[in-house]
Amino acid sequence: MRLWHEKLIPLLPSQQLLGQHRECCALRGNGWGKPHSTVNYIFKYSPYKLFQYHLKIIHEMKHRGYNVQPLWEEPTYRGKSAERHPNLKSITFKDDQTDKGKIYPEHNEEYLNECLDNLQKKGINIKLNVK
């Protein structure tokens, strides 16, 4: 279980992108609050942050032509078997809505390098354009 660094989302191979969608669905659902060393940091924040991160995944999936259950674009939705979040408001997704900065402060340069190393161990070499 891992949330890939946000800079990597548009560069992930399809298998990792789709896997990330499944992870987000699980974490938003009954997996919320269940400890796992690589994602424990997300539980320090509102579930809304995970929703925002998931929107980035969904946006990239749609950009690549995948169909996504529209209910996942609703912040209160947690899957078929979990109760909705009563305190998260609904918003309309816009392409640039979550692109104005990182969602999790833990997604820093060190974490980016950790993710790149992890992908490389899987035989996936991603080159970032550094400005």
Rank of each mutant, 00 (worst) to 15 (best):
H85V: 03
Q69G: 04
Q120T: 14
G33I: 11
S90F: 04
R84V: 04
N67T: 13
V39A: 09
S46K: 10
K121S: 15
A26P: 00
H5E: 03
K56C: 05
V39Q: 08
P13Q: 02
G19K: 06
V39P: 01
I42Y: 07
K100N: 13
K49V: 03
D117F: 12
D95F: 13
Q120G: 00
C25G: 03
N108E: 14
H85D: 03
H54G: 00
Q69S: 06
L8D: 12
T92M: 07
S14T: 15
P70N: 14
E23N: 09
Y41L: 10
H36G: 03
K131L: 10
H36T: 06
I57A: 08
N30W: 08
G19V: 02
L17C: 08
L50D: 11
E109R: 12
L12G: 04
E109K: 14
G79F: 04
E110K: 12
T76E: 02
P47V: 01
Q69V: 05
E114G: 00
Y66M: 09
F51Q: 03
L50Y: 03
I91S: 05
E83W: 08
E110F: 09
C24L: 00
L18W: 13
S90I: 02
H85Q: 11
E74R: 12
Y77V: 01
S81A: 03
H5W: 06
L8C: 06
D117E: 10
K122E: 15
C115L: 06
F43E: 08
Y53Q: 08
K122Y: 05
E60T: 05
H107W: 14
L128T: 13
Q20C: 07
Q15N: 05
S90A: 13
F93T: 11
L27P: 03
M1Y: 12
